[in-house]
Design a protein around this nucleic acid. Structure first.
Lengths: 232, 232
DNA sequence: CACCAAACGGAGAACTTGTCTCCACTTGCT
DNA sequence: AGCAAGTGGAGACAAGTTCTCCGTTTGGTG
């Protein structure tokens, strides 16, 4: 629901320009956006506005004068980031080598998911979000479909693989990133590599360049944790 | 922390028997345990005691007379369930075929993780839980190590695969189950199959018997959802 | 430089959601 | 029949969040 009135976007380049912000206000707006981007990526979709405000060095009140509510702020940064992803994905599609295109695309999207917890949450979300986010998701999906189509046509993909398998791959990558990304960044690449090998038409196997976790690393994994038991 | 006084376990076969429960009380205790098992598996480690009580058809007060707190109740059922898993894993280890042993074990553990959200949360948890749970986890881990060792010794495993890769596999399986298990049960098998193929020494490929999700199924996935945007 | 609309900070109101307590009432058992 | 054991569930407490309100500060213009 949330009113989607989309204030001045990132730069003062925008809509029926209501009025230029005062210098200090604009500076703060930018700092809020930066803080939101950073914390949203790092801590996922559950960051509180209080945290964002504190991290930006402003009071919550300031955040609320600029953005009607949590969702509006987050929507802004998500749409922005998905735009970047979309652009890079298109580049991967423009190359000649069908298989390399698949690898590039899947790797790049995986990387986005692995390094940005919030973005991942939004992309994995299946039930509809704000319209602007849905639109971005849609165009990303069609790029993935296109690269898949090419892979299938040129015969580099195993023929029992389908579009939705990529979706599953992203989901798996995210789960690995969830517990290793802060402690041993990039571990997800090891498993993505295995997965990619498994869907190649010829049985070629890429050597594993990223090491597995050691026992110590497993125990060092995961953000702090509370110590009590039975989940949560 | 939580006092680990481990009341009468499942059957009245237990410790310094403090006193046999009154018939109706014992009946309720069992219903609570059943409800807890079911909801914990279905909804994960975040089930509330109020839900469990309601599902068991008793008041919360009744739950609290029997179990000191949330953790004690959950700990009881987790340890019990892990015992079952451990037993089946041992069976898988007793066969002759090293590769089949790996497949059986990994499949069985994956199945447990996929169908029991709560158990998965506990097994994936890296920071220490209650002692009894840690013990169960330990013995499971050593079974996995054993089967891996055999696989490596007999040369059925790719030689750059290590123990911790199994841990990663379980984690990935769980992530697939997280969003498909209620709508299209068993989808995780498709991806486990790909993963298993990818770690075989010879390049043998098992045909995919489980279909991928269709677009409709992806959208039907996931528990209800709230409809608002940007994660949460 | 004086003035004021715009911007600010952050305490706290209003909710939400969960755990656990308390006690008047009910029930199995001898 | 009597009473200890058991029961249900309202509500006290404790977090944890979102968002409002208002006294104070400040940029920029006349």
């Amino acid at each position: 629901m949330t009113t989607v009135d989309a204030r001045t976007a990132t730069a003062p380049a925008a809509d029926p320009s209501p009025k230029p912000l005062r210098a200090d206000a604009e500076r703060n707006r930018l700092r809020i956006l930066d803080a939101a981007r950073e914390l949203f990526a790092q801590r996922g979709p559950d960051v509180t506005l209080d945290d964002i405000a504190a991290h930006a060095g402003v009071g919550v009140g300031t955040v609320y004068r600029r953005f009607a509510n949590r969702d509006e702020l987050l929507e802004a940064i998500v749409v922005e980031h998905m735009g970047h992803v979309q652009k890079r994905v298109q580049e991967a599609l423009d190359g000649d080598d069908a298989w390399q295109g698949i690898v590039d695309l899947v790797t790049f999207v995986s990387e986005s998911m692995a390094t940005d917890r919030g973005l991942a949450a939004v992309m994995m979300r299946v039930d509809p979000c704000a319209a602007s986010v849905e639109r971005a998701k849609g165009s990303l999906t069609s790029s993935v479909d296109a690269v898949f189509e090419r892979g299938r046509r040129t015969g580099v993909l195993r023929d029992d693989v389908v579009e939705s398998d990529f979706f599953a791959f992203f989901c798996m990558v995210r789960s690995i990133a969830d517990l290793t990304e802060t402690s041993v960044p990039g571990t997800w690449r090891r498993y993505l590599s295995l997965l990619l090998d498994s869907i190649r038409a010829d049985g070629t196997r890429t050597p594993l360049t990223v090491p597995a976790l050691t026992k110590e690393q497993i125990h060092a994994a995961k953000h702090g944790g509370r110590g009590d038991c039975s989940g949560r």
